[in-house]
Amino acid sequence: MRVLHTADFHAGRNLRGLDRTPEVHEALLEIAGLARSEKADVVLVSGDLFDTVNPSAEAEAAVFDFFLRLRDAGIPAVAIAGNHDSAARLHGLAGLLGWVGVQLVAQPTANPLDLIRTVETRGGERLTVGALPFLSERRLVKAADVLGGDVGAWRQKYREGMGFFLRKLAEGFRGDSVNMLMLHATMDGATPSGSERTMQFDLMNAYTLSPLQLPAGAQYVALGHVHKPQQSCEMPLAYYPGSVIQLDFGEGGEKKQVNLVEVEAGRPARVTPIPLTSGRELRTVRVKLDQVESRLAALGGFDGLVKVVVQAPGGTALPGLKDRVLRQVPNTLAVELDAVQDDLALPELKREGLSLAELYERFHNERRGELPTDLRAAFHEADEAARGEAEEVVA
């Protein structure tokens, strides 16, 4: 059996005012073509089909066109909802998508065995997939526990809740079937992209799963959520294929891929990454103020998207800087100023000795206004727990 595993389309992603949906659509057309050329029996999509809970018509068209092309090739698919998707919206579409061969699991039910999906391949083989969509941490851990209890305790509650579902899904595995697990979650030790959403990942990363919680009966675990392609576990074999294009500048330089999984019932799976070529390359360039023209001239032949970070003394007024950059590199999406001397010139801006929670509070106050009390409490509690864990490691 040949299974093509992909995830994290994020159709509808907007980067600095630029709609990336046409690039996502291009990548999905490439993946559909690979499913056909690689003679895939099934395609697995591990969540985050869309970038927002209310995607544009163009984003929906890109995703639905992908599934229609799989239908035209006679290739069934199993997909789950991710944290960026509207579970309710996708649940409402599940019936329609079923008519084109897509088994979409968007919401858990009272009976976890309802999350089991089976596919009979053209070769007569059976694939059993334990399909677990993204489960909001708030559903598994009450807010009161987060704000009032021990951090280690609410993290453990999340693991226990997820563990319940994983154990139940494993009960649906069959000895005469290829058995796979699919989920949208963060595994311990997962390496994120150098994303612009690093704070978001840090918060999300408080809720992680241990590889020890993955059922041993799964021949392959199809993961989604982390955008950097990587193997997460060897026993059972678990992989993140990553996002289908470089979605933000933090992913610049990453090579995107899908995974081809070759497997038969009762035998170990073999995984082959297949590189993707779609999507514009993203690049971040750091230049000193007096080298803007000379350094950026070298990007004349680069047809990707650029973020330029200009290093200049703090307090320097730089009228016309963006125009200077755009004259050199018209495909620049963002020009940012790195006032490298601010911390030295103004004692009140020094960051040394501040905790993560204090740094975040300063950031929030400057950019979004006063930090809400409940969020401040959660950050301080998480910071104290992190310090405690670090002290234990040192000890």
Score class of each variant (00 low, 15 high):
residue 3 V to D: 10
residue 7 A to F: 07
residue 27 A to C: 05
residue 27 A to S: 09
residue 37 S to A: 06
residue 45 V to D: 00
residue 47 G to M: 08
residue 47 G to R: 06
residue 51 D to C: 08
residue 51 D to E: 15
residue 54 N to A: 14
residue 56 S to P: 09
residue 70 L to Q: 06
residue 73 A to T: 01
residue 84 H to A: 01
residue 89 R to D: 12
residue 89 R to H: 09
residue 95 G to N: 07
residue 95 G to C: 01
residue 97 L to Y: 12
residue 106 A to R: 01
residue 106 A to W: 00
residue 111 N to T: 13
residue 121 T to N: 08
residue 122 R to H: 08
residue 126 R to F: 02
residue 130 G to Q: 05
residue 134 F to I: 10
residue 137 E to T: 14
residue 143 A to R: 14
residue 147 L to H: 11
residue 165 F to P: 02
residue 171 E to G: 04
residue 173 F to Y: 10
residue 173 F to S: 01
residue 174 R to P: 01
residue 175 G to M: 09
residue 175 G to L: 12
residue 182 M to V: 11
residue 184 H to D: 06
residue 197 R to N: 09
residue 201 F to C: 01
residue 209 L to C: 09
residue 211 P to Q: 02
residue 218 A to T: 06
residue 226 V to I: 15
residue 227 H to M: 12
residue 232 S to I: 11
residue 234 E to Y: 05
residue 237 L to H: 05
residue 239 Y to K: 03
residue 239 Y to F: 15
residue 240 Y to C: 15
residue 241 P to N: 13
residue 243 S to M: 07
residue 246 Q to V: 09
residue 253 G to Q: 14
residue 258 V to Q: 00
residue 266 G to W: 07
residue 270 R to W: 00
residue 271 V to M: 05
residue 272 T to Q: 15
residue 273 P to R: 12
residue 283 R to E: 09
residue 284 T to Y: 13
residue 284 T to Q: 15
residue 297 A to W: 04
residue 307 K to M: 07
residue 309 V to C: 03
residue 317 A to E: 08
residue 329 V to R: 04
residue 330 P to E: 07
residue 334 A to K: 09
residue 335 V to D: 00
residue 338 D to L: 09
residue 339 A to H: 01
residue 350 K to W: 03
residue 351 R to A: 05
residue 375 L to G: 00
residue 383 D to E: 10
residue 394 V to L: 13
residue 395 A to D: 07
